[in-house]
Design a protein around this nucleic acid. Structure first.
Lengths: 224, 224
DNA sequence: ACTATTATTTAGGCTTACCTAAAAGTAGTC
DNA sequence: GACTACTTTTAGGTAAGCCTAAATAATAGT
């Protein structure tokens, strides 16, 4: 019986999950940065979490960490709550997509299994949150969709925006105002040679949008 | 600018508020009992909370505590969140009145002012929670209603149940099954001489209910 | 009024999770 | 291969909030 993890630990696991989605390792300083705490504190916690039974992560000194299966499941559990909450806040309480992240970040740790279940039910078991991020189902399975980064689009290629996985409210408000929301059809008009800045057409409105490569690189689309 | 109080401290203040609603003092052991922690821990916290600037309570060694105005306001803030949450869970997420207390107890500490405001709005600024307890408004004013304990009813006197302020799910399920819910009209049929057990008529259904003096003493009614 | 019981406080410790400062390891450049 | 710069770890410390055990104050019974 895995005992109840502290909110702190849940946060560490969630962050590590996010940092290692590419299959690589997460480093001490990446984590320290992301969580706005000192590297020393991170080292301590990583050591602790790799010496539990079962261990939540595999940790190699000076190299980095990755989650074990136990760690991954714990991370997905929180991620499910987080994304369900975001969807709930938008769908039922009139939040905008830039307001939900910070709120969910706190509420996710105060959420009982019953509440999770009820929210899931009244939302009709949603598959995606307001940013288009997939919500793991109650078995922690994640819907898989064929997707690619906006940065991979070819000139004149169109697609539908799937995910805008930013957390910064300012960024989200800006993107929202441009029409860069999940579900929106876009087409790549041109790309500047040197810095890869993209000029896009919002198909519905005919509006044109300019997006830098850094912002655009994280937005994912389904081409076609 | 009063700094952000920790969940722990908020809980202490809320408990003390509840214990001193009769105007008296709360004692160390009452608090220790209620919070299921040792008396020594309570003493520590009481000393701490009476030495802040501003102090949240006035504490006299070996006598007891009561809240200051700052303490009372902090307590009401939490109480508002707690009761709004209870109402929200019942009205919007299909909870029963015996399930909401424990859930709200945790969520109340994770609730932002924005969330409080949105819940209040979608509920239409409710005045009472599912147990009939009054919800302080956003100025922390509490609706006043003329009420008396069920224990004060005279034989053959009728009234409408206003509050059933129990927390124990078992008790609430029992009372609910009997029809003892806020809003229900009842009439006192008889009272046993020695222990004051009450026999009541649920007016709507014509059903009869027997309630001990301890349970009944906490239920409040509006007579007439 | 005195003693037994009960309630409360003091004293000293533990755990979690953070910190800073100093030591040690890793990597890139000459 | 050695020097510098950077990252990471170790060591030692702090604050919150809980604990137990021992000391002290209040209360109640005779």
């Amino acid at each position: 019986m895995p005992k109840e993890l502290s909110p702190n630990i849940q946060d560490y696991l969630k962050r590590i999950y996010e940092l290692t989605r590419d299959g690589g390792l997460a480093t001490t300083s990446e984590l320290a940065d992301l969580m706005a705490i000192s590297p020393a504190s991170v080292t301590n916690m990583l050591q602790k979490l790799s010496n539990t039974e079962p261990p939540y992560l595999t940790y190699t000194k000076h190299q980095g960490v990755r989650l074990t299966e136990a760690g991954r499941r714990a991370a997905l559990k929180i991620l499910r709550r987080h994304r369900l909450l975001e969807e709930f806040l938008v769908a039922k309480l009139g939040y905008t997509w830039d307001e939900v992240h910070a709120e969910a970040e706190i509420l996710e740790h105060a959420m009982s299994p019953l509440l999770e279940e009820r929210m899931d039910a009244v939302l009709g078991h949603p598959e995606f949150d307001p940013h288009g991020d997939p919500i793991p189902d109650s078995n922690l399975d994640i819907p898989v969709i064929q997707q690619t980064s906006l940065a991979n689009l070819k000139i004149d290629q169109g697609g539908k925006i799937l995910r805008v996985p930013h957390e910064d409210p300012q960024v989200l408000r800006y993107l929202g105002k441009c029409g860069m929301r999940p579900g929106v059809e876009i087409k790549l008009l041109s790309r500047t040679p040197y810095d890869q800045t993209m000029r896009l057409l919002i198909v519905e409105t005919g509006e044109e949008v300019v997006i830098g490569p850094k912002l655009g690189g994280q937005i994912t689309v389904r081409v076609g």
